[in-house]
Amino acid sequence: MQTRSVSPRPGVPKPGLGARLHALRMRWIDNSPHFPAMLLVPVLLFFLIWNIVPLLWMVGMSFYNYSLVTGDPPRFIGLANFADLYNNLAVWQALSTTFIFVFFSVGVETLLGLLLGFLFWGSTELPGRRLALTLLFAPMILTPAATGTFFRLIYDPTFGVANYLTSQLFGTKIDFLGDKAWAMASVLLVDIWMWTPFMILITLAALGSVPKAELEAAEVDRLPWIKRIRYVILPHAKFILMLGILLRTIDSFKVMDLIYQLTRGGPGNTTEVIGITLFRKAFEGFTMGWSSSLAVVTLLIAIAFTSIYLYILNLRMEGGER
């Protein structure tokens, strides 16, 4: 660390009215019991206007019948929107599609991530390890909207490379995104491609949090691998792993742009996750009241996931940060 910046008496004002006023103001800020609050005010204001207000607006709107198409003013209808949601099969369908998507994407990404993470972990002496890790960042950070477009090129039924491979290997062509039986799997594959590296990095971070001394002790004791994982690695690594998995769950639940790019929810409604339904109803059908009620439900589910995440984060903070 540089010590240059801790210069003696930095910024001591020179005498003069302006400077004296400045000093006075500084002292006032300093002595003010509200100094920390002052630093927080801009953020709080911003969040109030751009977070709390829209949320309340949405919750309020969910009790109204309001369509931008008809141009009628919003009409209060109580819980009718929510009752309609409950009876709407398409909503349940979208919810179950979403959960299937979340379950498989997070599950496969976690498994693969753990596996590959262990592979990279034992390879600190591997040549070009750093380069390899940098390249692994690419899929998750590159513009998802463009990623979706590109995978349409790869999946293209007539020109795509994926079909070339299947026709060479199995002798058949598959319309990956257009076939009801394959669309979900194809979309999942792209998501897995994008986010497995994230789980690899989380695994590496988690393994990195295991104290070296304990690992060496286990090595000396010739502890079998299963026990090593169970008693040495997991107690230290589990927090980071759980945080990673939960974060992935929350983000996977939010998925929208990738699927929108790949299939727009089709064919039929096979890949229509709740995000797509919301988009369709709100920005293609402009039924704002009904969509708001669905958004409230979606938000409640997201809040449930988030609470679990916060609970574990809290545990970790209490257990002392590593």
Partner: peptide, 29 residues
């Protein structure tokens, strides 16, 4: 700060909101 913990958690939870959920009230606003 009083209730710092809650404040941090609140900030964190705003990140977890699905963007499509945020899009609707923003659009109306």
């Amino acid at each position: 700060i009083r209730r710092r913990h809650d404040l941090v958690f609140w900030i964190l939870s705003t990140r977890m909101m699905p963007p499509i959920v945020a899009a609707m009230p923003f659009f109306l606003m």
